[in-house]
Design a binder for these strands. Structure first.
Lengths: 262, 262
DNA sequence: CTTGCCCACTCGTCTATACGAGTATGCCTG
DNA sequence: CAGGCATACTCGTATAGACGAGTGGGCAAG
């Protein structure tokens, strides 16, 4: 007799108001919360739970799908259902675009990742001229055509965010900003060289569930939301000179802001 | 012959690599994106889709559950499945705690909501002394006992966030901060009167799927993540004088921050 | 010993059916 | 006309079964 993998699980009450598959989900959730099943550990298989609870397989799968929607577990075809490990999170400090960080040759992402001991990569770089969407045009003070710089960021091989920078074409065209490699200090350094001394940034933050395309690009597990960050850079004259639209895997980030109390 | 509610939907290819229920979800998603079904509008019923696609009901339900997980639709028992309306979002500006906003008698939440023309409410206020959790204790400079102020916020009857403020007991005990109504300008005004001139705030932002308790408290639809914000207030001496832990319905908020370019 | 295949076990997809419960509508009764 | 009930339609829950496909271990052949 080997020890039962369902050992710490109780029974369900079919006459309860609460649906059986919810009761099962509750028990599994509690077992996970209590550490009965640890991060990365395999939960009992569907068949084992069918036996244990005396319910049909679809009922068990229904329970798993609840926990999956909560981001607590993930299923691997042919292997089992596992407690989803909480990946180490990447902190984004609000001063990451401060001028003092721009003298280095490397981009903010690379510098930070190196400091944290992870292996950073940038991927799928694409630079092209486009017609601005309604939203981007509004944010950029009615610019019609823009230069778009797209790229994806990875940490230790895992995609964690992708971002698109939009700049008014009359600023960026023909400059190094339109080159794949914008040079040391990135496009913000180039903007300042072009006479657009940066004054402040504005960041808008939303959270939502990812679209299928985002799931694919960021290789998101189910039950993982995305953080959608839209940053607008303003120069000293109050002109919006760049909009950066970033979608981040929410389980990979903690954003951090410092606010003065005035 | 009435017009078919499934009119704009195509067929599925059972031999495709892509599972039938995913193909159906894809078609419904696209129809929604294209505006074929508008916000709040009812999608074809399960039975209609069963007829249209020639599949079993569970397959259709599977498709719906995908869209629900994406936060695109929500089901109402006895009525149908509807395109989830995007609720009006509440903007949280990063200067909402600036000293200049504190001279008014009302709290930041009430002032903002009134200005936006919505009806604000505060709910379930609870003030009590507690042993600090490990995390809170660390953030408050190893405080062991704290005063906890919990409350829930609603807009037009809809719960949108709940928050708990933690203050070191040696600061808050016996002051008006420990009263249900902390007086004009809120606890920050009281802290300053007690000699803790506020210097700056630090905010940490995460996004994740809600726990069942959070779903209940915020009456969240499935497929809606929460934004978890942890704010620490520091006085002029660098001491952490308050930690505020806030959980917000992500579909009700856009956070907005202004950052200096330095 | 190594290679390769088979098999057992895992989750993924799909069908068919049944009953329960919430909602809306229209008809029938008073 | 008003009220109430029957009914049809909606989604929710649950069962039982079937086949497919990915994974991994053990066994047999080389």
């Amino acid at each position: 007799m080997t020890s039962l993998p369902t050992g710490s699980l109780g029974e369900v009450d079919p006459t309860s108001d609460r649906a059986v598959f919810r009761q099962i989900a509750d028990q599994l959730r509690e077992a996970i919360d209590r550490g009965r099943f640890r991060e990365g550990e395999k939960l009992p298989s569907e068949a084992e739970l069918v036996d244990h609870y005396g319910v049909s397989r679809m009922t068990v799968r229904n329970s798993f799908s609840i926990l999956q929607g909560e981001g607590l577990v993930h299923a691997e075809h042919g292997k089992g259902v596992f407690v989803r490990p909480r990946p180490p999170v990447r902190r984004l400090a609000s001063d990451r675009f401060a001028r003092r960080h721009r003298d280095q040759g490397k981009s903010a992402f690379i510098v930070e990742a190196d400091a944290a001991g992870s292996h950073p990569q940038v991927d799928g770089l694409e630079v092209k001229e486009e017609k601005a969407s309604q939203d981007i045009s509004t944010r950029l003070g009615s610019a019609r055509k823009v230069l778009a710089r797209r790229r994806r960021y990875l940490l230790d091989g895992r995609p964690v965010e992708f971002a698109t920078s939009y700049l008014p074409l009359d600023i960026a065209r023909g400059t190094q900003i339109a080159e794949p490699n914008p040079g040391p200090g990135g496009i913000y350094a180039r903007l300042e060289e072009l006479g657009h001394r940066l004054d402040h940034f504005e960041e808008e933050i939303r959270a939502r569930m990812p679209s299928p395309a985002e799931v694919k690009t960021l290789r998101l597990a189910s039950g993982v939301p995305v953080i959608h960050l839209i940053r607008t850079a303003y120069d000293a004259e109050g002109r919006a000179v760049e909009v950066c639209d970033t979608v981040m895997a929410a389980d990979a980030y903690v954003l951090s802001y410092q606010l003065p109390a005035n």
